[in-house]
């Protein structure tokens, strides 16, 4: 099952796109869609861990409403600061999971993924955040 999962996923995703594009659910069109989905080349993939995949999909889905929340906060914020932060990689060996990671990070307006850290276990993430309220007085600026 785990070996079949990548094939099943890519084929059904392509079939979904085909059906949306043609807007036609007749049997002949579905057959053509399946044929096209199977005929297109596929990337070789390791067996997908189902739990991690579902978790990544869920996180990407939740990122959409979060993105709108962040967009509104970004729009009303008066003082923004740029920072570099690190975010852990789910699984470097599976392209789909990395894609979903990058999608989730970059979709939200506060953060943009910039690639991997040299250790290969974290993403370099550029963050633009409303400045945190600090109690200490700002550092003296040198003229």
């Amino acid at each position: 099952m785990r070996r079949l999962l990548p094939l099943l996923l890519s084929t059904s995703f392509r079939l979904l796109l085909w059906c949306l594009l043609t807007a036609d659910l007749s049997r002949l069109n579905l057959l053509i869609g399946v044929a096209v989905a199977l005929a297109l080349p596929r990337a070789r993939s390791r067996p997908l861990p189902l739990r991690e995949l579902l978790r990544a999909l869920w996180l990407s889905l939740v990122a959409v409403p979060r993105a709108y929340g962040e967009a509104l906060r970004l729009m009303v914020a008066s003082d923004l600061e740029e920072r570099m932060v690190r975010e852990p990689v789910t699984d470097r060996t599976i392209p789909l999971l990395m894609f979903l990671d990058v999608f989730r990070i970059t979709l939200t307006p506060f953060t943009i993924a910039l690639g991997l850290e040299p250790d290969g276990q974290h993403y370099r993430v550029h963050a633009l955040l409303p400045r945190r309220q600090t109690l200490r007085p700002p550092a003296e600026e040198t003229p």
């Binding site: 993105a67 967009a71 970004l74 729009m75 923004l80 740029e82 970059t106 979709l107 939200t108 307006p109 506060f110 943009i112 550029h126 633009l128």
Partner: peptide, 10 residues
């Protein structure tokens, strides 16, 4: 540049 990209994603 990065700040512009943040705004563009909005």
């Amino acid at each position: 540049y990065a700040r512009k990209l943040h705004a563009l994603s909005v």
